[in-house]
Design a protein around this nucleic acid. Sequence first.
DNA 1: CGCCTACTTGACTTACTTCAAAAACAGTGG
DNA 2: CCACTGTTTTTGAAGTAAGTCAAGTAGGCG
Lengths: 240, 240
Amino acid sequence: MDRPHETLIRNLKEHSRLRGEDIAEIHNFSLVTKDLSPDEDFIHQGDHPRHAVLVISGMVARYHLLKAGRRQYLSFHMSGDLPDAQGLFIERMDHALCSIGPARVAFIPHKQILESFERRPMLGVAIWRATLRDAAIFREAITNNSARPKPTRMAHLFCELFYRARVSQLIEGNRCSIPLTLPQLEETLAMAIASVNRALQQLRSSGTMDFHAGELNVLNWRELKRLGDFIPDYLHMKKP
Amino acid sequence: MDRPHETLIRNLKEHSRLRGEDIAEIHNFSLVTKDLSPDEDFIHQGDHPRHAVLVISGMVARYHLLKAGRRQYLSFHMSGDLPDAQGLFIERMDHALCSIGPARVAFIPHKQILESFERRPMLGVAIWRATLRDAAIFREAITNNSARPKPTRMAHLFCELFYRARVSQLIEGNRCSIPLTLPQLEETLAMAIASVNRALQQLRSSGTMDFHAGELNVLNWRELKRLGDFIPDYLHMKKP
DNA sequence: CGCCTACTTGACTTACTTCAAAAACAGTGG
DNA sequence: CCACTGTTTTTGAAGTAAGTCAAGTAGGCG
């Protein structure tokens, strides 16, 4: 396992150029880590957070709380991501964060990050760019849930998660841990759980991927991308 | 009509505090304005823009281009908005911009904006915050198109546009110009045009609003908000 | 006046949700 | 080691919301 600071540096380097001084500045961040059980809410709608979250390991999600306790999952985050960098400049949480499967996160005081921006403006730009990439992911989710047929939609989600995990070197061979359950896929993809299951079986029988017990196995990446209508440009990574 | 620079200042003040020096800095921006006919594409997917766009009047949309020329509209922008501030730090456009109805926009060189950030970091924060509010609007669109029943969904869209127009003082009485056509609502709300039409009629017959020829007339705001499940917190305005 | 597009409406069809229930599986404790 | 419990996954059947199709009206513009 990377040392916590290194996961953030690696992640920012995926899209931004960092100089030695920027990296030194990141190493000055004081991280308080916390282990989360599966499905543990750790930031709630309405909160006024004073710390930013850094995902160390496992997976973390953002979601909107709906009537009757239902959820709409908005995005998923993995090692190195800052899933609520927006909290630096937006007072009140309009959504919540929870773990998907067991996860480890670290908290960094906003104050420390904001002060680092004064010394190293390029670090601010890198984190700004990270929030802009988040926005691009949200836009893609609008299109995914609105305009794509259901099986395509599911393939696209797996493509995105696999691609991001691969860029962050979090895959082993063609396998990657995505500890989502079917009910969580239901609340992500805007489709009933029965359809989730049938779409999953369709993808399995296409021979492009398998997903079982929170483990994604990509068998034919090129074809899966085609099935999911996945074009990774919107992730704005420096190198595919 | 406001002078162009003032629309931006007003917009940023809706969520950020600006000092005299920040405002002076904005007045230094050299704006080149352009008039757009209805449905004119002015930034395309794949572009590498070197200017930021400021909406002066009318309405502008961001959209994803889909197969067979279809679109998914992602967000709408009105006077004072910077609909692609993200272009400051993201090279390549992952979506396109077009006018909705006739509109006037201004172009500001990225270079000028970036240099202003060095002199007035708080101006950078204000624009960063504007991009974060955009992201919150995208998140809400995910939930809207994914988790809400179709008539609710449509009511929510009108609520958001009316609320934002009101904060920006772009309404006259209860009326507000929203020059969207039914086919465009179809490509925004992920519902067939027949359903768009029927949902619209349902909203009309509820007595809460009327929408006709690009003009929205809100007759019962409180009830419309309820029908649209609209809670404006996510817009992060300083004052409602 | 004629063309094109936006809007409206009705009838048909089918995707998908909902409902219900069984099978697989994991964890717990005897 | 195996019954017991609860959850996740799977499957089938039924009902319905909403998409598609088709046709007609209205409205704007050259």
